[in-house]
């Protein structure tokens, strides 16, 4: 069940971006490149949030093309750069949102999500408002929320960039452990070399030519 991007090309601000690569199950592929190299645009394209009309290409998940599906039908877990929470829901309901929209009942949601929250240290805060959480806690919540419903691949857009170095290491370690237990394709975007080598099982850097970035991998 791999995630594959083929023939991706986009252009913005005079720059041209191309990409073709595959992420295998159990693999943590890191896209590591300088600012403006199209990492986030590429990730948003895969997730279905491309605001760039010039972006085109194909995305396959488990051999099926998902490029034409709306984001909510792509079955991809996404963690955004800014830790986002739904302020009207509790910490637990935030974490269980993916299950809720898939029709899982309240009790089962609680039973399935609480162990995840306990694991990342948010168990005691489960019934609180997410607005009381720190930046690090919000990002841990985002990690649980993205995985709890069982996505087929996970996309992370510089998820730890707003955290302090200790929290970053801690989050990176959690991510690795959780991913080992759920070996789905994982695509991480970062500009931090240290993080890339620590978290990734494979790193993909762009070929840089004047006005052009090419992300090509196997």
């Amino acid at each position: 069940m791999s995630l594959q991007v083929t023939d991706f090309h986009a252009s913005f601000s005079g720059l041209s971006i191309e990409a073709s690569f595959r992420v295998l199950p159990g693999e943590r592929l890191v896209l590591s490149g300088p600012s403006g190299s199209g990492k986030t645009s590429l990730l948003r394209f895969i997730a279905g949030f491309s605001g760039n009309n010039s972006a085109a290409g194909k995305v396959f998940l488990a051999g099926q093309e998902i490029s034409l599906r709306v984001p909510e039908r792509r079955e991809l877990g996404v963690i955004f750069q800014e830790p986002q929470v739904f302020p009207s829901l509790s910490v637990l309901e935030n974490a269980a949102f993916g299950l809720r929209v898939r029709g899982v009942g309240r009790r089962e949601r609680r039973d399935r999500v609480l162990p995840w929250l306990e694991r990342v240290g948010l168990g005691p805060l489960a019934d609180q408002s997410p607005l009381t959480l720190s930046g690090g806690e919000k990002q841990r919540l985002a990690l649980v929320r993205a995985l709890a419903w069982g996505p087929q691949a996970l996309l992370l857009d510089e998820p730890f960039s707003a955290l302090d170095p200790i929290s970053r290491r801690e989050m990176g370690q959690w991510l690795i452990e959780i991913h080992r237990e759920n070996p789905i394709p994982l695509l991480l975007v970062t500009h931090d070399q240290d993080e890339a080598t620590r978290v990734g099982t494979r790193i993909l850097a762009p070929e840089i030519k004047p006005g052009k970035f090419r992300w090509l991998g196997s």
Partner: peptide, 17 residues
Amino acid sequence: PQGWEDLARSLGAPRIQ
């Protein structure tokens, strides 16, 4: 914020949710 809408969509929420 646009991020909230994107987040909900990434989690599979239909329009009404």
